[in-house]
Design a protein around this nucleic acid. Structure first.
Length: 278
DNA sequence: CACTCTCCCTGAAAGC
DNA sequence: TGCTTTCAGGGAGAGT
């Protein structure tokens, strides 16, 4: 069994499931374990207690809860984090519940077995200038993610195109699974040097980014087995994975391979994904 | 600056 | 059956 890994579609699905908390008041916060990727600041309690949640949205793989006192809670799910929302009376503690927010009649829980996630807060008026976001590249679903934005970054880079997709400073929100799926959809080898892509391939790659991510969001995030998004909807995009975790299987008469690339598994189909721009 | 490598963590699965 | 080892990955920071 695989654990679900939250990438852009899973984070968006979670954000969608949290919208029922908007305009509600955070009445209490309990920190059971502060040791995540960074130590959860104790001040989180003080700044968020008795505030109203005005807005819940996503930047890259971060979930943001904008409060009515100009602070914004920043949550990252890492690789195994998840948020769940329950009615107060239905709350049953689970192993690895690290943070509990009481929000009027609801409980919001942050659970993370591998502790790669983070919970913090920022107070910049322009959230994009705060430390987590000022260096981030554009979201692939942002309307400003255009050919004229992406092409120069691709053209000047000698690293592999998969590393470009994983580089959050260039394009933010894509992780290992969707990088593999996007490159398969675009019929481009993960190993080709970025600068060697021709213009048609760049255009195709960008449209594959939008297509695969939107498709995954529409099916509620990928989930991989037992993930439930915040509102309890089970995601099922993993059924649509074409290459991820499918090494040695055949697709359209070609074999899917797995290779370690920069310390991460790359799943690809050498027969269908071009290594050249010709 | 561009890029790669290492590390943090737990639990599932494989190996013995 | 049960213990040990391996593996998965996001992103910061160190290293090349």
């Amino acid at each position: 069994m695989l654990l679900f890994m939250p990438e852009l579609p899973e984070v968006q699905t979670t954000v969608n499931g949290l919208q029922l908390l908007i305009n509600k008041e955070i009445t209490n916060i309990e920190l059971y374990s502060r040791k995540l990727r960074y130590k959860i600041p104790k001040k989180l309690i003080k700044i968020s207690k008795n505030t109203k949640i005005l807005k819940i949205f996503r930047i890259a793989k971060y979930i943001l809860l904008n409060l009515d006192n100009n602070y914004t809670i920043v949550i990252h799910l890492g690789m195994s984090g998840r948020l769940r929302v329950l009615d107060i009376q239905n709350y049953i503690p689970l192993k690895h519940d690290h943070v509990l927010f009481t929000i009027e009649n609801n409980i919001l829980l942050f659970n993370d077995p591998r502790k790669f996630g983070l919970i913090d807060f920022v107070k910049e008026e322009n959230i994009y200038l705060s430390k987590y976001f000022f260096k981030l590249g554009l979201d692939p679903l942002d309307k400003n993610f255009t050919y004229s934005y992406f092409k120069p970054k691709i053209n000047k880079s000698k690293t592999s195109i998969k590393q470009i997709l994983l580089n959050q400073h260039i394009v933010s929100g894509i992780g290992n699974i969707y990088a593999c799926e996007i490159l398969f959809d675009a019929k481009i080898s993960p190993f080709i040097e970025a600068c060697k892509l021709n213009n048609n391939q760049i255009i195709k790659l960008m449209s594959s980014c939008k297509k695969i991510l939107n498709k995954a969001i529409r099916s509620g995030g990928s989930s991989l087995k037992d993930y439930k998004s915040a509102d309890g909807t089970l995601g099922n995009f993993q059924k649509n994975f074409k290459v991820y975790n499918k090494q040695d299987q055949n697709i359209l008469g070609h074999k899917i391979r797995r290779k370690i690339q920069n310390g991460r598994s790359t799943f690809y189909c050498p027969g269908l994904q071009k290594k050249t721009s010709c």
